[in-house]
């Protein structure tokens, strides 16, 4: 991880292998630490944004994303190449986010004073202080976690229903239902902002 990979010095086959997640994993398992860095580079922003949208804030994004990749580093030798690496990575990320949310919930139970106040801002306040995309993100954060995560994976990360089902270990019908319910929830939240949505 100390040396940068210089793609200019590589032949096309090497670049192809490097671009292939599976190939990078095999290289890492053979002892090539640089391959892991390439994997991190390739997926870190998706992981960070998924954490950000899942949690609804940036407070723990860095810590959780580090935990995710450390976990990947330790478990990569057990990867069975039966699914996309990204699907496996998102599953780890979502589980880490759930662990974090569980801890936050527990902490809030015992230390309610530390819980941030609900942001029940008025429509006027939101219009004046946020653009519509930020307002949408804020309302996404208000969705229940089990509906929020499939929606984020679909509309932010662009995963198919099948990939979402694999990542969250749900059946396809449940994914379809939860994404619909998330959209319905958002639609109701955003009814006052129809003009801005246009």
């Amino acid at each position: 991880m100390d040396n940068e990979i210089n793609k200019d010095d590589m032949n096309p086959q090497a670049i192809y292998n490097l671009n292939d997640d599976f190939s990078l994993i095999r290289q890492f398992n053979s002892g090539n630490e640089k391959a892991f860095k390439e994997l991190v580079n390739r997926h870190k922003e998706k992981v960070r944004n998924l954490i950000y949208l899942t949690l609804g804030n940036t407070d723990a994004v860095d810590d959780i994303s580090q935990e995710v990749f450390i976990s990947v580093y330790k478990k990569l030798k057990f990867f069975r190449f039966e699914s996309q690496f990204s699907t496996w990575l998102y599953r780890i990320t979502v589980n880490k986010c759930r662990d974090h949310l569980r801890k936050v919930k527990l902490r809030n139970l015992f230390f309610p004073a530390l819980t941030p106040e609900n942001e029940n801002h008025s429509k006027t306040y939101l219009r004046e202080n946020y653009d519509i995309k930020e307002i949408v993100r804020m309302y996404v954060a208000k969705l229940p976690e089990k509906m929020r995560v499939p929606l984020v994976l679909r509309d932010f990360e662009g995963l198919s229903y099948q990939e979402i089902a694999e990542a969250l270990e749900l059946d396809l019908g449940t994914v379809k239902s939860r994404i619909f319910r998330a959209r319905e929830g958002l639609r109701k939240f955003l009814e006052p902002f129809q003009e801005e949505l246009l």
Binding site: N49, Y52, K133
Partner: peptide, 15 residues
């Protein structure tokens, strides 16, 4: 609108 939500700024020191 969801597709256009701003991403987090890239963390250059993450690695």
């Amino acid at each position: 609108q969801l597709g256009g939500v701003k991403s987090l700024p890239e963390d250059h020191f993450f690695e």
